[in-house]
Amino acid sequence: MTEKRPKVLVVDDAATVRLYHTTLLTGAGFEVSEAANGLEAVEAALNTAFDLFVIDVNMPKMNGYTCVETLRSATVGTPAPIVMISTEDSRGDADRAYAAGANLYLVKPVDKDRLARVARMLTAGVAA
């Protein structure tokens, strides 16, 4: 029961964004892994059972929506909560995110307390 830190996968093609989210989430008590595009995320999720995903929309090779759809499909079939983060809300992105299977949609830049808070909330069952 002691000290099981929830595992989160941070998915973004921008190294700085990954670093930012990783720093925030590590600070909030998560064990963080990173992937640089949707396909890498899918491969990582096939190897590890994550408790939470934080996923960007615009990425090369496989964009965020397809990534979320694949994570939810039989290929991976993860039940873990997924937060999608995008630059803008102007293109109906939030609707697409929820339709793909995301649990929460946030707009960049994400306030640091906010991300930590929702991450804790979404993984409340996993650990303190």
Binding site: N37, G38, L39, E40, E43, N47, K61, M62, T66, T75
Partner: peptide, 29 residues
Amino acid sequence: ESMSRISPIFTPARLPEGIVYQRPIGGSR
């Protein structure tokens, strides 16, 4: 090596020994 830096046209699958890629059935992913 990994397809994740090359192309999304294959579907990755996990086998006990590691990742393998499959051509999707029915054309697209």
